[in-house]
């Protein structure tokens, strides 16, 4: 399936949940927010939400800022 992750088009070979996607990206999930098609996905549901073809996903975290 083809989807957009942080603005970049990506092809995923297998089905996965958001938890799987985070793991696949090598992220530990701490202080991360996931927005799927402009909706914030509550952390407790990441394991139940499958990524779908055409999804636009934003994975967001904190950085230094003034």
């Amino acid at each position: 399936m083809t989807l957009k992750i942080n603005g970049k088009e990506e092809i995923l070979e297998k089905e996965m949940t958001l938890t799987g996607l985070i793991k696949d990206k090598g992220l530990n999930g701490r202080n991360i927010v996931i927005e799927c098609n402009l909706e914030i996905v509550p952390r407790q549901t990441w394991g139940k939400v499958d990524v779908k073809d055409g999804d636009s996903i934003e994975i967001i975290s904190f950085t230094g800022g003034g």
Partner: peptide, 18 residues
């Protein structure tokens, strides 16, 4: 203390500011 939010870049070794 102020911080900003940004897209995570999995390829960068950027530490978590928090």
């Amino acid at each position: 203390v102020t911080v900003a939010v940004r897209r995570v870049d999995p390829d960068s070794s950027d530490e978590n500011i928090l």
